[in-house]
Write a protein that binds this DNA or RNA. Structure first.
Lengths: 149, 149
DNA sequence: GTGCGTGCAAAATATTTGCAACGTC
DNA sequence: GACGTTGCAAATATTTTGCACGCAC
């Protein structure tokens, strides 16, 4: 099995924070990290169950809380159908475009944006922990198909 | 009662879109616009009930769906305890810094940001309608007082 | 008058919690 | 061995829906 440095990073951090590292948590974290899409708690549960059919829904929810508090996972703007999550590691410095026609979420990278935010914040005496940028509109396909607004 | 131009704007738009303008919708929109920051559906319901104790939870939910589709209200990253919403009107061309220690919300303006977003989006074939940028961290006062993270 | 919108209550979803057993430190 | 974690099931919380009636258009 691939030794995933990101997995190690999470393990390291959780241990240092006084959390225990269990096979369930490893599975959940590995699954979350390996999921490129944005997922709901339920979807993550189903993915995990492919490898461990006995894992409990409650464990997934509880682990997501831990991971969110630790900053390894972040909640997204949810339409209906439950909260969406994404893992944060390795996703540094990217933003999200949300297509309002088809619901697709496209990631994009805007170089230097983070630096400029830090600069603007520093001028206001603000210490930045993280940020959330979301661009709403119409994606290429929907614009072509429907014409859009 | 104050004639709220933003309220008029919403009414105008909804009417034009074929929705009916009812006393309940007026109350919900007025309340949402008058609410400073994020609220859950339940909180909005309680606020509305101070003025109309008979308004139904379902009506608030249904109206929120309409307002969200129309772009007057947007879903936020939800912690636990249900989706959070915020109203969108009047938020043009400035961004928000949110202090996680005291809850203060500081607005700031980052010149050229909108232009760069449009550029990045255009490269991806994305047509931008609006965006939402939120910077989370510690404000000057809280950093000085508590030290922060 | 024609429907959309509303209220109510019930249904469907989503999330949290109590507790005994279990596994990590 | 102590104590955080897990699974299960039940409890809560949140959101949606069916239906009869009322109101905006």
């Amino acid at each position: 099995m691939k030794t995933d440095p990101e997995l190690r990073l999470v393990e390291e951090h959780l241990r240092r924070s006084g959390f225990r590292w269990t096979s369930q948590r490893a599975l959940i974290v590995r699954t979350a990290l390996g999921t490129h899409e944005h997922f709901t708690a339920e979807q993550l549960l189903q993915l995990c169950r492919r490898l461990d059919p006995d894992i409990s829904r409650a464990t997934v929810y509880r682990t997501l809380q831990v991971l969110e508090a630790a900053g390894f996972v972040a909640g997204l703007d949810a339409g209906s159908g439950g909260r969406r999550f994404e893992h944060v590691i390795g996703h540094a410095d990217h933003e999200h475009m949300v297509c309002e026609a088809c619901g697709a979420i496209v990631e994009f990278h805007e170089p230097g944006l983070a630096r400029r935010l830090l600069g603007a914040a520093a001028r206001a005496g603000f210490r930045v922990a993280r940020h959330s940028l979301r661009v709403y509109g119409t994606c290429r396909d929907c614009a072509r198909r429907g014409g859009g607004p």
